[in-house]
Computed example of a mutant assay.
Amino acid sequence: MANVRWVADPMHSEVQFKVKHLMITTVTGYFKSFEVEAVTPDDTFKSAESIVFTAEVDSISTNNEQRDTHLKSGDFFDAEQHQQVRFEATNYEQVSDEEYKLHGNLSIRGVSKPVTLNVEFGGIVVDPYGQTKAGFTVDGKISRKEFGLTWNAVTEAGSVVVSDEIKLHAEIQLVKQAS
């Protein structure tokens, strides 16, 4: 069997990040525009030849226009100079029937670092339109400072405004492409 190519179904996928604000609440953000492409040796997702994720920084949304503008600025993502966040897998390893570790390089703001993400494989089904789809839940954590996202402020009481740890969460539905 030849390699199988899969791409994200944007209507049934989402990519989020969560960060502590003032260390007392969590703010959730999304990338509204992103792509995922995977190539597997067969239909099973027991292994992958390649997995590439890209997100458009300009599509960032936290449901607050002022905050989104700040995130796109040079204080954070610097969207003008660095239009995309990119993850390229280096290894996709099975841990159990439904759990995998996805190792790869994450590039944000021109800085590339190795990260490991936890992947829960939801399975493969054929939808009512005859399309073969595979579902995944992806979770991980990164240090934003490691990627040059170092802006912060301190409250009067000495608390940090934005935490260093960023939680990543994605629900990804891939569609098998015709060969």
Rank of each mutant, 00 (worst) to 15 (best):
F147H: 08
D164I: 00
G148N: 05
V85K: 03
A134S: 05
A157Y: 07
T150L: 09
K145A: 13
T132E: 08
D139T: 15
D139M: 15
V119H: 06
T90F: 08
N118D: 13
L149A: 09
D164M: 05
K113F: 06
V115R: 12
S112F: 01
G123T: 00
G122I: 09
R144Y: 00
D97S: 14
G148T: 05
S163L: 03
T137F: 13
D139C: 14
I142N: 05
V161N: 04
W151G: 00
G135A: 02
V115H: 11
A89Y: 02
E165T: 14
A170E: 04
F121P: 01
K113S: 09
G158C: 03
L168N: 06
L168E: 03
I124K: 02
I124W: 07
S143R: 06
H169G: 10
I124D: 01
S107N: 14
D139G: 14
V161A: 00
Q84P: 07
E99H: 15
V95C: 05
A89R: 06
V160D: 11
F121Q: 09
T116R: 06
Q84S: 10
T150Q: 01
K141D: 12
A153F: 11
F121H: 11
F147G: 07
H103R: 00
G158Y: 01
F121A: 09
Q131W: 12
E93I: 08
T150G: 05
E93L: 02
D127I: 11
V154D: 09
R144S: 04
A170V: 04
L168A: 08
V95P: 06
W151A: 09
F87T: 01
V95D: 08
V162H: 08
K101D: 03
I142R: 07
W151E: 04
E120D: 15
V119F: 10
E99G: 13
K133Y: 03
G110P: 04
L168T: 05
V138R: 05
R86G: 07
Q81C: 14
N105W: 00
D127A: 14
K133R: 12
V125G: 14
S107M: 12
N152R: 05
S143G: 01
W151M: 03
D139F: 13
S163H: 05
P128F: 09
G122F: 04
S159G: 08
N152D: 06
Q81L: 14
E120I: 15
T155K: 00
E93Q: 10
L102T: 01
D127V: 12
L106H: 04
F87A: 08
D139Q: 15
V154F: 02
R86Q: 13
R86S: 11
A153W: 11
T137S: 13
I124C: 08
S159W: 07
V125Q: 13
R144K: 08
V85Y: 01
Q94P: 06
L168K: 05
V126H: 09
I166W: 10
V115E: 13
D139V: 14
K133M: 09
L117T: 02
K141V: 10
Q81Y: 13
N105D: 11
D139S: 15
G148I: 08
S163Q: 02
V115Q: 13
G140V: 05
E99F: 15
V160Y: 01
S112Y: 07
